[in-house]
Design a protein around this nucleic acid. Structure first.
Lengths: 106, 106
DNA sequence: GTATTTGTTTTATAATATTAAACAAATACA
DNA sequence: TGTATTTGTTTAATATTATAAAACAAATAC
């Protein structure tokens, strides 16, 4: 049983955080904001598709009536499996980081 | 500016945690324990060397007097740069995960 | 001096990440 | 209409990381 890759983790987290407004570009911006540097779109698209195929994300066509130009979005949302995967990686990370405090770093 | 890869992160953390007894095999065991599945040695050795080359880890020959058979270890320890890298990835992760609670998952 | 133990290093392959560009569909407005 | 603009998705080429298995090295014991 392998861990989620780092980009998979961040994509799932961004989808969770964007609640109902998660699509390729908004996910990209979310992750760039959170990590502090600009991610490229391929870094999102590939794991997105992978997560969908694994059943962690559900993809559906967005509203067909955008207010300005531009094609319609594909929105993503977490499935139960996706939530479970997040829960698991969170636990692993808490174990890995347990005990590390600011003091440790001085 | 890129993030540490996941294996780099876990190797740094293991070295920190093993304080003075961090060498390839003990790091491998630490990470396997923390993540809950058996890692292979190549998954450690490569990032170890990379972290050393980046100046995050210092490598030194272990005591030349092991008690039983077996060659002597190479011990690793964190440098200031390594501690800084850990601090940074910790901050990114705290930002990424901020607000996620048990309730969110129910 | 050779078997056993402990540990490091290499190599081949698979999976992920990165970058850049191509492609698609919607609106606006001449 | 029809073409420019905007917003968004998808593909493709390359580089970097991860995985697995095996080879290599150095120490002790007897």
């Amino acid at each position: 049983m392998r861990l989620l890759s780092r980009s998979e983790e961040y994509v799932l987290l961004a989808v969770w955080r964007l609640q109902g407004n998660a699509y390729t570009l908004s996910i990209l911006d979310q992750i760039s904001e959170v990590t502090g540097y600009q991610w490229q779109i391929g870094a999102i698209y590939v794991p997105l598709e992978k997560l969908r195929k694994k059943g962690y994300l559900k993809k559906k066509k967005g509203d067909p009536t955008p207010e300005r130009g531009g094609r319609s979005k594909f929105l993503y949302e977490l499935t139960d499996l996706g939530r479970k995967a997040l829960r698991e990686i969170k636990e692993v990370q808490e174990t890995a980081w347990a005990g590390i405090s600011k003091i440790t770093f001085d």
